[in-house]
Design a protein around this nucleic acid. Structure first.
Length: 283
DNA sequence: CGTTCAACCTGGGCGC
DNA sequence: TGCGCCCAGGTTGAAC
């Protein structure tokens, strides 16, 4: 579920762990499902214990916790990738089931951080500097969606034969956009999701980038999109509000808020795409 | 190379 | 009620 706005909201919600020392880590339901944890749980717990959190970052759709250098040991990065159903929580999780990892903090007002993941597709990995770059450096991630420019998009996608909606999901082109926001961005840019990238000109890339920055920032301001039960929640387990502002996503058959035409749902590379056939045009 | 597709999972909703 | 099927915010690697 979580795309850039949801992950950024989670990041802000757990940012208070900066400066805390890790007392220990447990993995209550990690082995039930093939959630990817690297290195193994025993090694990970050992390497985390005693470390201090130096910062809480986001790379695309990942939360990356920076761990200060230990005694004779280098800086490390603990990366959580929520994929479809992962949540980072500072309060009690929705169920005790599906709790993949709990990080306990030492000292007064200690608290804990819980990674809860119903479907178990998420990943938890500990990196050194080089490992982090390999996993989510510039080779894997394009510019962040909050700051992407039309020049960035044209340079990365201008020659592609792919449909523009499919291309916006490519994290190497732009980091952080997923299925909801790709649809919402293209609606606001007035561009048909089926348009081939190579047919788009600079003004269109500029419009897409401008709406990407705006929509994603708006969604962060509204703490992301929560659709249905046991889905995305903030770190203190509240629902987001941006779903109320969706113009096309999940609105098949409902009237376009701009022109009244029924919103259409199609499938592109196995994933649903929603758009207004009247407001969104091919170049 | 670009692109598609199945796979990884749980669980809600729907038709029969 | 129960069963089978479809669907879901993501990513990966194998197969065209």
């Amino acid at each position: 579920m979580p795309e850039l706005p949801e992950v950024e909201t989670m990041r802000r919600g757990i940012a208070g762990i900066a400066g805390r020392r890790i007392a220990g880590a447990t993995f209550p339901r990690s082995r039930v499902r093939p959630i990817s944890i690297e290195p193994g749980v025993a090694t990970l717990a050992r390497r985390l214990t005693g470390r201090t959190v130096a910062g809480v970052h986001r790379r695309g759709k990942r939360i990356v916790i920076e761990l200060a250098p230990g005694a004779g040991d280098e800086r490390r990065w603990l990366a959580f990738e929520p994929r479809m159903t992962g949540l980072m929580l500072v309060v009690d999780p929705p169920t005790v089931e599906h709790v993949r990892m709990v990080v306990e903090f030492a000292g007064r007002g200690s608290g804990r951080l819980t990674f809860w993941d119903r479907r178990g597709l998420g990943t938890i990995r500990l990196f050194d500097d080089a490992g982090l770059e390999r996993a989510c450096g510039p080779h894997k991630h394009g510019p962040d969606g909050l700051v992407v420019t039309g020049e960035d998009l044209a340079a990365r996608l201008g020659d592609s034969r792919r449909a523009v909606k499919v291309a916006l999901l490519d994290q190497r082109a732009v980091a952080g956009i997923g299925n909801i926001y790709a649809a919402e961005i293209l609606f606001r840019a007035g561009i048909d999701p089926r348009s081939r990238c190579r047919r788009l000109k600079q003004p269109q890339w500029d419009r897409i980038a401008e709406q990407a920055r705006r929509v994603l920032a708006d969604a962060v301001r509204h703490e992301g999109s929560s659709i249905g039960d046991e889905t995305y929640r903030t770190a203190d387990n509240r629902v987001g509000r941006f779903q109320k502002r969706h113009r096309v996503y999940g609105r098949e058959g409902e009237p376009c808020t701009a022109c009244g035409t029924a919103i259409v749902r199609i499938v592109q590379t196995q994933r649903a795409t929603f758009f207004c056939p009247a407001c969104q045009r091919r170049p």
